[in-house]
Design a protein around this nucleic acid. Structure first.
Lengths: 150, 150
DNA sequence: AGTGAAATTGCAGTCAC
DNA sequence: GTGACTGCAATTTCACT
């Protein structure tokens, strides 16, 4: 992981479809070393995958909600149960077990408030072991990661 | 946006490098309609970009921290100022203006606790107008989005 | 909107240095 | 690392349904 590798990762994070040739041109190198470096970064797991990024609003997911969830019981079994349950819900796009003022932070995408309310009442709140749920509604996305700070 | 378009988006979100030919095979169609649909999805902004996904831990970003930030003053000018400042910090990978028990939720990547402490003391806490910062440290990533729930 | 084949073209991958 | 080379697969087009 030298400066060239970092530069390659930055370019690929910005544009996963950039060609070896173009990377080479931007870094003032030829294709051979770039080709080998990219393959190495893939092989060694620095690059885990390539993905198309889909516009959330275009597919009608208008709402982002963060929920702070607190559980009643904290034995391993109960945590595992909660984690397994939460993964089933398609509305939950991220879930973190955190150390802080609550137990889990979950991020939810919903089409609208009604869908979120359904999720909360019928899905989340109906799980056993939930003690407290506190929702924060996203008004604006001030910054969203496009690439890791290398 | 019919079922075929959705299926295409799902495949491309999972693997941005999948070929037109392979999508066609999976959906039991030929390349021509897939080609045109993909171009349309790109052209109309459903697909905003293609990216390489880099392994956070491989590049030594071991810590994820979520901060709940509360400001003192909430006039537009002060909000804009804070939002502008926060965007400068490379440690901050996401920032949301939320309606809830605090004002902003920020997500931070750090190499280690020392780096986070430096960020907190020297960068975040030294901004004007900060009233309260409450950190939650991620212990485990229970679920992380790989594709939008379409 | 789809098929199926054909045309094109530019990239991935290789090699000698 | 360079630079040239090439096979070939993928994209892209077209006539037709």
């Amino acid at each position: 992981m030298d400066a060239t590798d970092k530069a390659i990762l930055l370019l690929l994070q910005k544009n996963g479809k950039i060609t070896i040739k173009e990377i080479a041109e931007r870094l003032n190198l030829t294709t051979t070393p770039i080709f080998e470096r990219v393959k190495k970064l893939e092989r060694e797991g620095f690059i885990t995958s390539y993905k198309a990024i889909v516009d959330r609003k275009k597919v009608n997911l208008q709402l982002i909600i963060f929920c702070n969830v607190t559980l009643n019981l904290h034995q391993t079994d109960f945590l595992k149960k909660f984690e397994k349950d939460i993964q089933q819900f398609p509305e939950v796009v991220e879930c973190y077990h955190v150390a802080g003022m609550f137990d889990y932070l979950i991020k939810i995408y919903a089409k609208n408030m009604e869908e979120y309310q359904q999720f909360l009442s019928n899905k989340l709140a109906s799980l056993e072991n939930i003690s407290k749920v506190q929702s924060s509604f996203v008004m604006t996305e001030v910054k969203t990661l496009s690439h890791l700070p290398l």
